[in-house]
């Protein structure tokens, strides 16, 4: 564990966050909302983390990541029968594979570009997808669609948890978040991850060393997209509701904000950024109607003060004397 989560701050955060997140529902008032709110934050953190890997660790900035988030929900509606409860695990697998396949095709196009051009071409493709679902009558257009039958979660005849119980679902999402963090740590710690880092820092040199830079990028893009779709799938299941606004560029934009805020590329910073952003949003909007103004000012202040997001700031604070 100590070895695995390298930095002191990171360890501290993980030892604080996950136990706290585990215990929090016990201290909150027993009602559906708090658990649901926590669940949606956790789900979004999975999404933000996949973006954090892509942008922070691979240097591929995308403003179209929300496309996969939305597809996670819409793919389920597309492939699952409407009035029949399907198996959760099987469909999780289907959706991740389908999203990965789509990402493979999109990636081949998108990865021809880089930098600002990549931001824009990912945006363009996401917007096309957004308009496709907004304009289509079969998919409920702008008003969105309901998922009528939630999937059944039994595995080998054993039902581990109940999707209709918010608390069960919360713990499942939290576990997913933890798994994602471990997964990304494994990826970045592996040989693949180290080469990816080299690709990010100096693509020319890495090419000269005989690596196929394009393949490394493509694989990263596919992995991140599949996990984004997984997050979107969880989001769709939470309330049984999908809407094209999941795919809007604003969704990508706010995920990017959370990721930068947390500390780009630090992975655990994605959780930090999501929690801080959502927490601020929640408390400011209950504080005043002009929450946008405060939110904007706070974001500006944080950019000015923190050179590498909140994670960077904390690391500086805790590890300065070393």
């Amino acid at each position: 564990m100590t070895y695995f989560f390298g930095k002191k701050t990171e360890q501290l955060f993980i030892w604080l966050f996950f136990p706290l997140a585990l215990l929090l529902p016990l201290f909150l008032e027993q009602n559906e909302f708090y658990v649901n709110k926590l669940t949606s934050v956790v789900i979004f953190a999975i999404f933000v983390m996949s973006l954090d890997y892509l942008v922070g660790r691979c240097g591929m900035i995308t403003l179209g990541h929300s496309m996969f988030y939305g597809l996670g929900g819409y793919l389920f509606i597309l492939i699952a029968p409407e009035f029949e409860a399907v198996n959760f695990w099987v469909y999780t697998f289907y959706i991740c594979v389908l999203a990965a396949a789509i990402a493979l095709v999109v990636g081949v196009i998108v990865l021809r570009t880089s930098g600002v051009y990549m931001i824009m071409i990912t945006l363009a493709i996401a917007q096309m997808c957004f308009y496709f679902f907004s304009d289509s009558v079969e998919f409920g257009g702008n008003d969105g669609l309901f998922i009528l039958m939630k999937p059944d979660t039994s595995l080998f005849g054993l039902a581990f948890f109940n999707l209709d119980d918010p608390l069960h679902f919360y713990y499942f999402c939290l576990l997913s978040l933890f798994n994602c963090l471990v997964f990304w740590k494994l990826v970045t710690g592996s040989r693949f991850g180290r080469i990816m880092e080299a690709v990010k820092d100096n693509p020319q040199r890495t090419t000269a060393l005989g690596y196929n830079v394009f393949l490394f990028r493509l694989l990263s893009y596919v992995m991140a997209s599949a996990l984004a779709a997984y997050a979107g799938y969880l989001f769709a299941l939470q309330y049984g509701f999908v809407n094209p606004s999941m795919m809007s560029w604003q969704t990508s934009g706010s995920a990017l904000v959370m990721s930068i805020l947390g500390g780009m590329g630090s992975l655990y910073g994605a959780i930090l950024g999501t929690v801080v952003y959502e927490g601020l949003h929640y408390s400011l909007e209950h504080l005043t109607e002009h929450w946008l103004l405060l939110m904007g000012c706070l974001i500006i202040a944080m950019v000015m003060l923190f050179k590498a997001g909140i994670a960077g700031f904390l690391e500086n604070l805790l590890e300065r004397r070393k």
């Binding site: 009602n31 909302f33 708090y34 649901n36 949606s40 989001f235 969704t251």
Partner: peptide, 16 residues
């Protein structure tokens, strides 16, 4: 006016 936030707000008003 963000549809994807609607279920969450509705839950908040109902149960919280």
């Amino acid at each position: 006016a963000r549809p994807e936030r609607a279920p969450e707000i509705a839950t908040s008003l109902m149960s919280q």
